[in-house]
Design a protein around this nucleic acid. Structure first.
Length: 566
RNA sequence: GCGCCCGUAGCUCAAUGGAUAGAGCAAUCGGUUUCUACCCGGUCGGUUGGGGGUUCGAGUCCCUCCGGGCGCACCA
């Protein structure tokens, strides 16, 4: 029995599959060369799947790296490693190419085992422990409760939620959080705007103008006609608080509709009421980074890379928004999170250095305890014509309208499939199109197609789960390719989590869907009417089930449904 | 002026410092038609904005120039 098969049998709950066993085999060879004195320093083996299939199932550049601590040339070292690896029966081919890459091809038997493992692991397939033991607070959107969420927030709703799911899949402890900016002059303007509208008066020039203000006013005065009897100062507060409650609930409802769940809705007011702001100030003073100047209280953020120091308490005695930000960060840390991740829009990138400096001023590690991801803005077009977003004029495309126009699946997938540091142009007509030029439907269709095959198998009485599985029969190019892609999934999750790039999951799913469609095109799964059921059909049904499971698990990470029918 | 991000095929975008820079759309030619054709394959398309550097190897890292986006409050 090969070492690989043995490893598979003993590790019943193996999360990683063949790739780790291959890595171990190569590592053993490298360690042996070290013991023999051919190498003078240890090297960690990294494996990758070559872009070109001609280069085998796996490739390693270990000889290129190790050659630096050896007197032997890279290529000769690679030849030695390849020689030793050929003794393993799990490998059908081991070759050396280029400057010293070692290319490895697995036997169909070894490669095919993955299908059964994936099916057995079910929804747990892909999950791993690469971030085990780390706790993250992921904060995103964090809008004023003074209006509907618009498309600027929507990118973060999709990406932030996907990131949280990916981090959790990598074994991390994750809490998602929405910071409610419910203090300050914006809230008063909001209250004044609704109040004015309720009297049928023009909204103040610097107030809020969307049609939703009229709706809020109409609803509030219908439910609380007594508000108009209140003295003017109290009246504004009454309208403000009622509008706040309704608008916040509206935001929550829309996000729920968008399948974006927040574990914590954190109110800025609570920072003050709970004393967190004062506690934060005390902490910073203790750390020695606070000073007075021209009647104001400053935090010396410039010590840690900020352009200039920042004011905590203004000359007039009021605390700044920055003071609240500072308190909020420290509050998160007090609640036990190792790392506070912030997802901010490009218009906030000026805050990156000051927030990181806050962590440093508090005695934290600004590279470890705080991470700020800056996302570029989304430009919206409809049929190639730019849609202008302007909150003041009320010309906004809201999250709700987006969902109505294109659906949750298409919206989430489209927004999550790009890295956030590139500006993005989204065409509403394009992502609404239910056709093959839309990646989300391409991926979902692959899943539905498999579901159909599995249904048909069941209908004709094929019980593949309880039939003998013969992985060695999966020896075609398309089967090999598909299984290789399926097998990458845990590594994709790990990379997406560590790099904070959930879009990798979407790109992977497109690759997986392509591999499946090619397989489907080349390999008949169910017996034709004139055929007997054979081991190949059974083995291919396992491949189908494994692929469907992987597609479903990946789509779930993006918050996108995996339909059984389309 | 200073700072951050970006510049890859006609368009929208991929690509842990790795091998011949890839997908989709658009254009064009073909295939399957007994498991979902919302599928598959071929062709066309590139000086990765320009120039220099680092090394076995650069779209990727460093410098510089050009172009675009965003930001530079005792506002929130």
């Amino acid at each position: 029995m090969s070492t690989l098969c043995h490893a598979l049998l003993v590790s019943r709950y193996a999360r990683a599959v063949a790739i780790n066993d291959v890595r171990e085999s190569v590592q053993r060879v490298v360690d042996e060369l070290l013991a023999q004195g051919i190498l003078t320093a240890g090297v960690e083996v990294t494996l990758e799947r070559p872009k070109s299939r001609e280069h085998g199932d796996y490739a390693t550049n270990v000889a290129l790296v190790a050659a630096k601590s050896s007197t032997i040339a890279p290529r000769d070292l690679a030849l030695k490693i390849a020689e030793a690896l050929r003794a393993d029966p799990a490998f059908t081919e081991v070759s050396v190419a280029g400057p010293g890459f070692v290319n490895i091809r697995l036997s169909a038997q070894t490669q095919g085992e993955i299908a059964q493992q994936v099916v057995n692991q079910g929804s747990a397939y892909g999950r791993n422990d690469s971030l085990m033991g780390k706790s993250f607070n992921v904060e995103f959107i964090s809008a004023n409760p003074t209006g509907p969420l618009h498309l600027g927030h929507t990118r973060w709703a999709a990406v932030g939620d996907a990131l949280a799911r990916v981090l959790a899949a990598a074994g991390a402890d994750v809490t998602t959080e929405f910071y409610i900016n419910d203090r300050g002059v914006q809230m008063d303007k909001f209250g004044e705007s609704v109040m004015a509208a309720s009297w049928g008066k023009a909204v103040p020039e610097d107030g809020y103008h969307g049609g939703y203000i009229l709706d809020l006013a109409a609803r509030i005065i219908r439910e609380h006609p007594e508000f108009h009897q209140l003295p003017e100062s109290e009246q504004m507060v009454a309208f403000r608080e009622e509008s706040y409650a309704l608008q916040l609930q509206q935001q929550k409802d829309v996000l729920e509709l968008f399948r974006t769940h927040f574990d914590v809705w954190y109110s800025e007011r609570k920072l003050y009421d709970s004393g967190a702001v004062e506690r934060a100030q005390t902490r910073l003073v203790e750390q020695g980074h606070v000073y007075e100047f021209e009647g104001a209280l400053w935090l010396r953020t410039s010590t840690f890379g900020d352009d200039k120091d920042r004011v905590l308490i203004k000359e007039n005695g009021e605390r700044t928004y920055f003071a609240a930000d500072t308190a909020y960060y420290l509050d998160k840390r007090t609640r036990g999170f190792d790392t506070a991740i912030y997802l901010l829009g490009a218009d906030h990138h000026g805050y990156v250095n000051r927030l990181r400096a806050v962590a440093a001023c508090a005695g934290d590690d600004m590279d470890e305890n705080i991470e700020i991801l800056i996302g570029q803005l989304v430009k919206i077009t409809r049929g190639g014509v730019e849609v202008k977003l302007s909150k003041r004029s009320g010309q906004i495309v809201t999250l709700e309208e987006l969902v109505e126009e294109v659906g949750v699946d298409a919206a989430r997938y489209t927004l999550a499939r790009y890295p956030v540091d590139t500006p993005l142009v989204v065409d509403l007509e394009e992502i609404a199109r239910k056709a093959n030029d839309n990646p989300v439907f391409y991926v979902q269709y692959a899943h539905a197609r498999i579901a159909s095959v599995l249904r048909n198998a069941h209908d004709v009485g094929v019980d593949w789960r309880n039939s003998e599985f013969s992985p060695e029969l999966l020896d075609s190019e398309q089967e090999n390719e598909l299984l290789g892609v399926v097998e990458k999934f845990p590594a994709v999750i790990t990379a997406a989590a560590e790099l904070r790039e959930p879009h990798r999951v979407a790109r992977y799913l497109e690759e997986l869907a392509t591999a499946y469609h090619r397989f489907y095109d080349a390999c008949r799964v169910l017996p034709r009417s004139d055929e007997e059921l054979s081991g190949v059909h059974i083995a291919r049904l396992w491949v189908c089930a494994a692929t469907a499971q992987t597609l479903a698990n990946g789509l779930d990470l993006l918050g996108v449904s995996a339909p059984a029918k389309m």
